[in-house]
Structures are given as C-alpha cells and as structure tokens.
Write a protein that binds this DNA or RNA. Structure first.
Lengths: 207, 207
DNA sequence: TCACATTCTTGCAGTCTCTGCACTTTTGCG
DNA sequence: CGCAAAAGTGCAGAGACTGCAAGAATGTGA
C-alpha cells in the first residue's frame, strides 16, 4: 500500500505551484476589492490561467478563497472512530478536524485567508453550507457508533441522537476553528480547543 | 402604531395569492423532477408570472422552495431576550423559533415543503447557509445579554462564549425544526422539543 | 367618478457562474 | 525519440440574477 510518495512528479509540482499562484491572486483581489467585486475572469487574468482550468481546479468561484474541501477521512480513521469508546462529541470533532486541516496551505495563503474571513462573514456562510453537505454522511457515522455501542437503543432514538451529536459538533466547529486559527501563533493543539469548547458547552446547557 | 391591519387591501391579497400559487408550482415541479432539473423559467411558466417578478418576490431560485426568510424579531422581543435571566440557550432558541415560524404557510405548501426537505438534503444546506447569514447579529445579541448579566466578565471571553452559545443553538436548530415538522400532527409546542433537545445535549457532552 | 400619485409588474439587455465537448499541449515512460 | 495518458484550453451555451425604464394596477382625495 503506497502512502503518498514523498517525491512528487513534475505533474504534481506544477499543479501545486499553480494552485498556490491562483489562490494568492484570488485572495489578494478579494481583500482589495471585496469578494463580490471580484470575478473569476479577473482572478484568471491575474494568475494567468484559463477560466476553464480555474473551474477544473476549484469548482466554484469561492473555491480558491475558502480552501480545499475537507478530505474524506480514510476508512481506517472512520473505523477507529466507530469502534472507539471515548467521549463521543470529542472524538467526532477530532475526526472532522483531521479532515479539515489535512492539507496545510502555504503561509501567505493561510494568513490572507484568515484576514479575509475576518473581513467578509459571508464566506463563513459558504463554508458552513459546504460542510452542511456532509451532514448526512456524518450523522450516519455517529449512528453506526451508537448502534454498536448501545445495541439495545431503539432505531429512531439512535437516529435523533446521532443528528443532535452531529449538529452540536458541526455547530461548534466554526468557533473552534476560528479560535485555533486566530491563536495559531501559540502552538496549541486543536485538541486543546476542542476540550475547552466542550467544557464550555457543558456549562452553557447546564441549568 | 398600526399593527398588521386585519383586513388586507387588494394589493396584499393579490400578493398573497400569487405567492402561494408560485410556491405551489415550484414545489410541485421540484418534487416531480428534482430541484436541479427545475429552472426558474419553468416555475414562472407554470405559475404564469414573469421571471423578473419571481426574483422580486423570492430573491433566489430556492426562495420559493425553502420559504420566507425568518423575520427579524421586533425590538420588544429582542429586549425581552437581552434582559431575561432564564436558561440562555433555551431563551435563544425560542427567539429564533419565533422568527422562524412566524409566517404560517398554507397547508399544502407546508406539506409539500416537508416532503421536499426529506427528499433533497441539499436544501437543508441552503437553509443552513441562509441562517448562517444571521450568525453575527445573533452572537451580538447573546453578547449583550451576557454583558448585562455578568458585567465583570472580560470582553473577549464574553465574545467567545456568545459565539459558542449561538453555535449550539443554530446547530441544534435544524434537528428541532425537523422533529417539530415531522411530528406536527401531534399538537406539541416547540418549547417541548427545545427542552428535550437541550436535555439531550447535556447528556451528550457529559463525561 | 375622475384625475393623479404611488406602487407593482414586466420586458430587455447584459453580467456572471458554471458545464460539456472537442482540440491541443504537456508529461511520463519505454 | 515516439507513443499513450493526463491535463489545459477555447468555445458555445444554459441558467441565475440585476438595473433600468416603460407600462399596468391600485389607492386616494376632490
């Protein structure tokens, strides 16, 4: 089983270089003019790429701005999650986080992105919507874990519970990622923030 | 201060009739062909309205499918929320719910909408995205309440806490609304589901 | 009842996002 | 070098959405 080859072919290197170039152009323009006043054509002109290729790379106009779609965690991780017996929400958030921060962008892009998110909250909505697409799949994962953990739990209750677990995790995620990104200078792990967030939630919903 | 006049002028009645007619046409088509295979032009042809007017009414293609945007709660409610001292998340969810279910659509539309939501999860993403637009405003509300409730709480902590409260509420909301809509035959109040959901969340995040 | 102001609907022209398809270029490899 | 696979590109077009200005419907006051 070949893990990601450490040395990349010319093809991959070109792709990476291009991706970065386009992302930079897109972010620069968006920061300068505002997302709504930037068109795909402008980004393409600035980064010397054809619009058709832009969409092959990023899929949507916002693609270059919000970063790559969280990768689907591979089966090993998923199975681990389903079988694990730790605190459920925590485990789930870790699973999500793992996919989310899998591809580390370069420093500039990272910084600009953070700046842009702060400046244009509408992008957060795009993010949330994209993640919402994975709600079904995620809820199903949680349901599987609940089923294997509590074989006696009624079907419908398990489904409702799974939905809620997923909702809480997805709901809190933007906050966690914001904190993590904002304080990324201090070298704390995501786990720390997840932990803290859950403790807070517990306090919040306590009577 | 005129509250909504009980008797509507011809103008309003026309608008209502039209809205309903268009919503029905849109939902019928979407249920039959799938959202992606329906165009605004088709909806307009089916409901005998001009595309331009369609957008004046609904703003987006999905507008007629997902229903009207939750109305901004009026100042009285907002103030009440800010000053209240009950369980925070619960109060917030009630505030959201109040805006959300303010405009009762007619029976057919309601039923079709429920059906469509079940059939096309992508619509849920649209919903979530639309609600995400109000994140800022909502978090600010919570922050105000926290500030008045705990004057000694540090600024930044209040902001983080507010964000998290808002996230939990927004996160759980789709679940609550789903439950409420699915079981809307049984005449239970939204409060009941909110209550139950919060109790569940408490259990979920408990160690 | 009739003008007049207001509000609403509509057509039109145009911009922008996004897609399928066919064609060319680039890359990997023997 | 030569060939096959992969990737980039141009083009034509569908579809969502907007601003504008003309035309229709509606409310109002005399």
């Amino acid at each position: 089983m070949p893990t990601a080859a450490p040395v990349l072919g010319l093809r991959e290197r070109n792709r990476l270089r291009r991706t970065r170039r386009v992302e930079r152009a897109a972010l620069t323009l968006a920061l300068e003019l505002g997302v709504d006043n930037v068109t795909v054509d402008m980004i393409c002109e600035a980064s010397d790429i054809s619009p058709r290729t832009y969409f092959n790379y990023f899929g949507t106009k916002e693609g270059a701005l919000i970063g790559p779609e969280p990768s689907v965690p591979d089966e090993a991780f998923v199975d681990e999650f389903v079988q694990a017996r730790g605190p459920l929400v925590e485990d789930l958030m870790l699973l999500i986080a793992r996919g989310f921060f899998a591809t580390e962008p370069d420093r500039d892009v990272f910084t600009m992105r953070r700046e842009l998110y702060a400046k244009e909250p509408s992008l957060q909505a795009v993010q949330v919507a994209r993640m919402a697409g994975k709600r079904q799949a995620t809820a199903e994962l949680v349901r599987r874990r609940l089923a294997s953990q509590h074989p006696d739990m009624p079907e419908t209750e398990a489904r409702d519970e799974a939905q809620l677990v997923m909702s809480v995790a997805f709901g809190a995620f933007p906050v966690i990622s914001r904190l993590w990104i904002e304080r990324s200078g201090e070298e704390a792990e995501v786990e720390t923030y997840i932990h803290a967030a859950i403790a807070r939630i517990r306090r919040i919903v306590s009577p």
